[in-house]
Structures are given as structure tokens and as C-alpha cells.
Amino acid sequence: MIKISEIKELIKVLDASSVDELVYEFENEKLKLKKNVPTFESVPVQTAQPIVTPAIELADDKQPVTVEKVQPDYDYEITSPMVGTFYLSSSPETGPYVKIGDQVTKKSVVCIVEAMKLFNEIEAEVDGEVVTILAENGELVEYGQPLFGIKQK
């Protein structure tokens, strides 16, 4: 199953590209991303809002499901400073650095990203509450990929 973080990544790529529509099919999954291409001729751009808002349709073979855009209740994203493997804990035997609902401070270590056997302890850099965890333990993450959503104090 496609993960939300992957969909987000795809949206980013689509946003930055000249492609208007992207359809991805794998086994029983189908994902369709489509830009609302504005018509510049008739509608002058007057807002600072992003002009591209992708619509997401995630379809199953029989039961089409629409993923509603979840309104994020966080105002800060901790992103990965490098490509690597994301770890929620310092070892498989110990508990995670943080859980959803935990309070963190700027200096709190929230996870590790490992690349080429360098273990990067990522700090929260803000004071607040962990609202959501956007990557999975053991997953490969990209540079700049959101890892945590934090609601700042």
C-alpha cells in the first residue's frame, strides 16, 4: 500500500514539474494525481495561495476510497537533513525516542537517520508536542522528507 509520505513526495514532484496528471497503478492500487491548472486568460491571480492544488484519488479495485486531505494540526515539520534509513529508537531493543503526544524541547533527540554508517541524531529544534510521525521505522528517507509534525508551543 502506498504510504501517505510517499504520496506527499509525489505531490511535491508533480508540483514542481510541467506534468498535469499522474496515474500510478500497482497490483490492486491505483493512485491518480491531477493538478488544477489555472486558466490565466480569464482569472487574474490575486492571492498568495498556492495556485496548484493537487486532487488525490486513491482507488481500490472494487471499493474506491477517497483519501480526504487531513488538515494538519501541526505547524512545524522536522525534516531529514540527509538521505538514509530512519530509526525511531537507538536500537531494536530500546523504546522509541519519542511517541505521539510527547513534549519535546529544541535539544530533544527525536530519531536517527543513518547513512553510510553515520548515525545522525536528529534534534527537534523547536519546543512543542509531537503530533504525528510521518515516516516508518526502518524506512529509507530522502533529503528534506518530513519526519515529524510538531505543534509548537
Binding site: 537533513p81 553510510m116 545522525n120 541524531e121 529544534e125
Partner: peptide, 22 residues
């Protein structure tokens, strides 16, 4: 990336840990 072997056996290991901001 960084294990040292002599005749297919490990002779040395390296552990690198970092604390960094963005």
C-alpha cells in the same frame, strides 16, 4: 562503507555518531 577486513575477517570497526541541525 567502513568495516576493515583482513583475509575476509573483520579486524576493525568504526562507529560514527553525529548531532546536527538542518
Amino acid at each position: 562503507p567502513n568495516d576493515i577486513l583482513l583475509n575476509d575477517r573483520k579486524i576493525a570497526g568504526i562507529l560514527t555518531e553525529m548531532q546536527a541541525e538542518q
